[in-house]
């Protein structure tokens, strides 16, 4: 009788493992908080060479966000279908232009967008409509979205990447950036980039 119970328990554990291995990801209930490490988020290497150069990536088919060559990476979780993201798109573009126009910052801060529940086609619609120059990635199956706590959109996460490759979240907040100059100032303060920190 004991043996049967043991076998059944083993069977149950194996079935549990199979079920959860087939989950694309385990959802987390809360977004990453300041001071935490970002969960491993793997994205496809952009097909566009301009975007690959921008991120300082060239090898492989995929990359982890923490591998981007920058001291700070700003991640926008957005959706083509989100009216708030649509309204905030010009502000995010202003932030991008502000960073790219500053020779002291352009190699240190990078921006990426992840389209929650958006296909490549839908992300391209958003890119073209708002003339977004930084890389946008589709997340059609909500894989990344689940890993960052199924946040509402737009949601911004800023990641500080140290010279030794370690990283931590320095900003994690729901809502648009609204005013690009104030947002940039805040990030510089949080990241201490202007004090020689980061890469």
């Amino acid at each position: 009788m004991r043996i049967i119970v043991k076998i059944n328990l083993h069977l149950l554990i194996i079935i549990c493992c199979i079920v959860f291995m087939h989950q694309p990801v385990m959802a987390r209930s809360n977004p990453p908080e300041k001071g935490e490490m970002l969960p491993d988020l793997t994205l496809a290497l952009p097909a566009n060479p301009v975007h690959r150069d921008y991120l300082g990536l060239s090898k492989g088919d995929t990359f982890k966000i923490s591998e981007i060559k920058a001291g700070v990476v700003i991640i926008e979780i957005f959706s083509m279908y989100c009216p708030y993201c649509q309204r905030d798109a010009p502000n995010v573009n202003s932030l991008f232009n502000m960073i790219e126009g500053n020779s002291g910052l352009k190699d240190k801060i990078k921006i990426i967008g992840i389209g929650a529940g958006n296909s490549s086609f839908e992300v391209d619609i958003f890119r073209k409509k708002y003339n977004v120059l930084f890389p946008l990635f589709p997340d059609n199956e909500f894989i990344i979205h689940k890993r960052v706590g199924e946040v509402r959109t737009p949601y911004f996460i800023a990641l500080k990447i140290n010279r030794d490759g370690s990283h931590k979240v320095i900003y994690s907040k729901l809502g648009g950036i609204e005013k690009a100059d104030q947002f940039l100032e805040l990030l510089l303060k949080l990241s201490e980039l202007d004090k020689g920190g980061g890469r």
């Binding site: 149950l12 549990c16 079920v19 989950q23 959802a27 009216p83 309204r87 979205h145």
Partner: peptide, 23 residues
């Protein structure tokens, strides 16, 4: 029953995701 519960709850996670605009 336990196996069915695991299967149902396990796959349930995969079907509930949706985007929500803060608008």
């Amino acid at each position: 029953f336990l196996i069915l519960l695991v299967l149902v709850t396990g796959f349930g996670f995969a079907t509930t995701a949706f985007g929500r605009s803060e608008a």
